[in-house]
Simulated assay, not measured.
Amino acid sequence: MTPPGLLRGASVDFRWRPVAAAWYLGVGDEIAPGTSAFIRKLTVRRAWAKKGVSTELLSFARAHARALARPYLRLDCVADRLGLRDLYEHFGFAVHSVIRKGTVSFARDELQTTQ
C-alpha cells in the first residue's frame, strides 16, 4: 500500500497533500565504511501508523541497498523505544551494538540484504 504523499521513500508530495512519512536513506556508515546503506530519521505520520508504511519503506530500503551491492542495511534507534525496536526486529533487523551519546543509548541495528 502506498499512501498519498509517499514518493519512493521521499517526503515530497507535489500535489500538496499531507505527507505520510519522511526519512533519509544514504550510504554513509560508521561501523564498516562501504558495506551498507543507512536509514536515518524514519518517521511516519500518526494517521498512517500501523498501516504498513514503515514496512514499505524498509522493503524499499532493503531493495535499494541490494541494488547498490551493499550487504547490509543499518539504522540507529533509541534503545528504550521498545515498540519501534520490535518493528525493526520483526522485519529482520538484529542488534549489532549499543552505543551511548551523552545520556542516551542507541541500538545500532543491521539487516543482511543478501538473504
Results as ranks from 00 to 15, higher is better:
Arg66Ile: 11
Ser54Val: 04
Ala79Leu: 03
Arg81Asp: 11
His90Ala: 13
Val12Gly: 00
Leu57Tyr: 01
Val19Phe: 02
Ser59Asp: 09
Ala10Ile: 07
Phe14Ile: 08
Ala67Cys: 10
Arg70His: 12
Trp16Leu: 11
Thr103His: 13
Pro3Leu: 03
Ala69Thr: 08
Arg40Ile: 03
Val78Asn: 04
Val78Gln: 05
Gln115Ala: 15
Met1Pro: 09
Asp13Lys: 05
Ser54Trp: 02
Ile31His: 09
Gly5His: 06
Phe93Gln: 00
Leu58Ala: 02
Thr43Lys: 10
His64Asn: 11
Thr43Glu: 14
Ala67Glu: 15
Gly26Lys: 05
Ala61Ser: 13
Val44Trp: 05
Val53Lys: 03
Leu75Asp: 03
Arg108Trp: 00
Val44His: 02
Phe38Pro: 00
Ile99Trp: 00
Phe14Tyr: 11
Trp23Asp: 03
Arg45Ser: 15
Leu7Met: 08
Glu56Val: 12
Ala21Gln: 06
Pro33Ser: 15
Ala65Pro: 10
Arg40Val: 07
Leu6Gln: 01
Trp16His: 14
Leu82Thr: 15
Phe91Met: 01
Ala37Phe: 00
Lys101Asp: 04
Glu110Trp: 13
Ala65Tyr: 09
Val27Phe: 03
Phe60Ala: 00
Leu7Trp: 05
Pro18Phe: 00
Glu56Ala: 10
Val104Cys: 02
His96Asp: 12
Thr35Asn: 10
Leu42Gly: 01
Asp76His: 11
Ala20Tyr: 04
Ala107Tyr: 02
Tyr88Gln: 04
Leu111Glu: 03
Thr35Met: 09
Ser105Ile: 00
Ala67Pro: 12
Ala65Trp: 10
Pro18Gly: 00
Ala10Arg: 10
Ala20Asp: 04
Ala67Arg: 06
Thr114Ala: 11
Glu89Tyr: 04
Leu6Lys: 07
Ala69Met: 11
Cys77Ser: 15
Leu87Thr: 09
Thr103Glu: 14
Gly28Met: 12
Arg100Asn: 09
Pro4Gly: 01
Phe93His: 05
Gly52Ser: 08
Glu56His: 10
Arg85Asp: 08
Ala69Gly: 07
His64Arg: 14
Ser105Arg: 13
Leu57Pro: 02
Gly92Arg: 10
Gly9Thr: 08
Ser36Ala: 15
Tyr72Pro: 02
Trp48Leu: 05
Ala49Gly: 08
Leu111Met: 04
Lys41Ser: 12
Phe91Lys: 01
Pro4Met: 04
Gly5Asp: 04
Thr55Ile: 08
Ser54Glu: 11
Leu68Thr: 03
Leu75Pro: 05
Ala20Val: 04
Val19Gln: 06
Arg62Phe: 08
Ala107Met: 08
Ala63Gly: 09
Gly28Ser: 14
Ala22Phe: 14
Leu68His: 14
Val98Asn: 07
